[in-house]
Amino acid sequence: MATAAFEEIAEDFEFLDDWEDRYRHVIDMGKAMEPLDDALKVSVTKVDGCASQVWLHPTIENGVFSFKGDSDAMIVRGLIAVLGALYNGVPTAEIGGIDAHAELGRLGLNDHLSAQRSNGLRAMIERIRQVASA
């Protein structure tokens, strides 16, 4: 059920045996992401429950979900990029059916993130699901 963009990340991760290489790849994905406009970094787009500053700005057009995001932590920017690959371009009706925990588990992220980062990731996923179901 994952998007083609997420499947591409999963394929990349298959070639990266070492977790350090995977970690760097996630950071590189975050660096490659376009920064969120400062005007969108407001309380309504801020995600609570994250150790670092995180903002998600979702949009829904013709029933299709997408978002842009940003963080002050490079690894979190990378996680936002991974979530973008998982959720952007998906019809809102299908967002709730995506098992993010299982999909991220395919990348090994569940086993290698700190408790705080895992909590923040869950908070971002919950925000995405809330917006898509509203």
Rank of each mutant, 00 (worst) to 15 (best):
M1W: 00
T3G: 11
E8L: 09
A10G: 03
D12S: 11
E14H: 10
E14N: 12
E14W: 07
D18V: 05
E20R: 13
D21V: 10
Y23Q: 01
R24K: 08
V26C: 05
D28E: 12
G30A: 06
K31C: 05
M33V: 01
L40R: 10
S43A: 07
K46N: 04
V47L: 10
G49E: 01
C50P: 00
L56C: 05
L56T: 07
P58M: 04
I60F: 05
E61C: 11
E61L: 09
G69Q: 11
D72C: 13
A73W: 09
A73H: 11
I75A: 13
R77C: 10
G78R: 12
A81Y: 00
L83E: 08
G84V: 06
G84W: 01
A85C: 06
G89V: 10
V90F: 14
A93S: 10
E94I: 06
G96A: 13
G96M: 08
G97T: 11
R106T: 11
L109D: 08
L109C: 10
N110F: 00
D111Y: 00
S114L: 03
Q116M: 09
R117S: 02
G120L: 00
A123H: 04
A123N: 02
I125T: 12
R127L: 02
R129C: 03
R129W: 01
Q130R: 09
V131C: 02
A134Q: 15
A134P: 02
